[in-house]
Amino acid sequence: MASVLIIGHLWAVIGRPLEFATQGPFGASPSMTRFRDPVRGYSQFAYLDHGYAFFAPEPGPSHLIRATLTQPTGTDATASSPSPVEPLVRNYPDLNDQWPRLLYHRHFMLAEFLNDIHHPPGEPPQEIAQNPVAIREWIQARRRYETVRDSILNRLQTAYPQATVAIDRLEHRQPGLPEFMEDNVPLDAPQLYFVLPDAPPPLPLEPLPPAPIDDSPAAESPAAESTDSETVREPEPATLGRSEAARDARPLVRPIIPRLPLRAPIEVTP
């Protein structure tokens, strides 16, 4: 009996890493998904459902949340004086605000989580127009992102009730070795920060002539200020209704249709 329990537990321990490691653009390997199914609930409840992809597959860039807090008159959201000032901009995480380090890291993970679950707005692409499962996943992924984003906005709105709150996702990439050693670009150089747009930029209508290759640091200038900052708003009833309809059973085998955008599986790890 003890051996059976041990084997069942080990099954749960190994099930999620196997399923997670076999994720591809079309979802997880069907065989690994089936393998994990009997112990899925147990591994989720016992918090054994991890992929263990620490700093992998690449130690990539960091992601932050930039909150812009603007008073209706343009005054500082936290200032007691009415003198007009620039909108207050706060980044999460921020070592000056969150101490001890573990508290900072919790905020860091929140920013990474928001970035990981980001899904662009708009109608599903034509490639999946004929597939109801893929369409449903598309809609759900966007709603998941919007729900978490709105929750973060609500938190900021509660903290700064007089201000208009907007947030952006920032990406902070590391300098390459030549940039750092030869060009003396510091780790926190402004040109290493990018505002990530909510929607992908529109595709050009006509093919552009090939651009000359320029691998100088100047070629990677910071993105223009995003115009699609995400502000507080009430949830739309129609959107909530769609959520009810979208609740379903998971298909055993995913259709061979790309889930756009193609991206790495979600798991926030250090």
């Binding site: 899925r40 609930g41 998941r144 938190r155």
Partner: peptide
Amino acid sequence: EAWVNNRTIAALNRGEFGAPSAA
């Protein structure tokens, strides 16, 4: 009033945006 508030956590885990979780 948390960063990820009660309603959002419940929705994430109950399966409003995908498969429900036993967590």
